[in-house]
């Protein structure tokens, strides 16, 4: 475990804490895409099936359980909490899951390291994670009103990916056997999706204003 990886994981964790904090304190999920949250939950469920058959470290196990529990927690709030569910932008959050899920599933069946159920599901989760933010970005563009916490949530989610890239570069040089072309490609795509958002986020931040998208 290197510092980039740890910082990346913490950034990921922090983004989830932010979103829970936003929902819990404001009793509102306005501006949040339930589609994206559902996709992330699917990502965690398909990737962390390995909790049942492989053990890496206590750190990994605990983090996986936190990610699983928190993503189901967010979904529960958005769907069932009496006040929170009324603030959900149902009409604006229209992105269809299958537009992302089906191509990712097909790609995982074709491009993978091993044609086994668990490996294909794991690969599917890698591909899906890369694009799962899209419904959220579309919702942002549409509603244009981005509150601070939602902006920070996406910022830290993007930072997590950028830090993971540094982690991969570090591991590439320090671990000769560590070669994860498929994960790297997906990670680059994922980070690229945030580029536009980062640009506007930093611009608004520099100007000392609230984030505004064009």
């Amino acid at each position: 475990m290197n510092l980039f990886r740890l910082a990346g994981d913490m950034s990921h964790l922090f983004s989830i804490v932010l979103i829970l904090l936003k929902i819990y304190t404001s009793k509102s999920c306005a501006g949040l895409s339930m589609k994206t949250q559902e996709l992330y939950t699917l990502v965690f469920v398909t990737r962390y099936l390995d909790l049942f058959y492989s053990y890496v470290s206590l750190y990994n196990t605990v983090m996986k359980l936190i990610f699983l529990a928190s993503s189901f927690g967010i979904l529960w709030y958005m769907r069932y909490h009496k006040q929170v569910k009324q603030t959900y932008d149902r009409e604006q959050d229209t992105f269809r899951h299958y537009i992302l899920v089906v191509p990712c599933a097909v790609l995982a069946l074709i491009v993978n390291n091993e044609l086994s159920v668990t490996e294909v599901l794991w690969t599917f989760s890698i591909y899906l994670e890369a694009v799962a933010i899209l419904p959220q970005l579309v919702l942002l563009q549409r509603t244009k009103n981005v509150d601070n916490l939602t902006g920070q949530y996406i910022f830290f989610l993007g930072a997590y990916r950028a830090l993971y890239i540094l982690n991969w570069i570090y591991r590439y040089w320090t671990e000769p056997k560590y070669r994860q072309y498929l994960v790297w490609a997906a990670g680059l795509v994922q980070t690229g999706l945030y580029a536009d958002f980062f640009y506007y986020y930093l611009k608004s931040w520099q100007a000392g204003e609230k984030l505004r998208l064009p």
């Binding site: 990886r5 994981d9 492989s54 994860q180 498929l182």
Partner: peptide
Amino acid sequence: EESRSGHDEL
């Protein structure tokens, strides 16, 4: 086993 080395990430 090497192909699974990425599985130690989250």
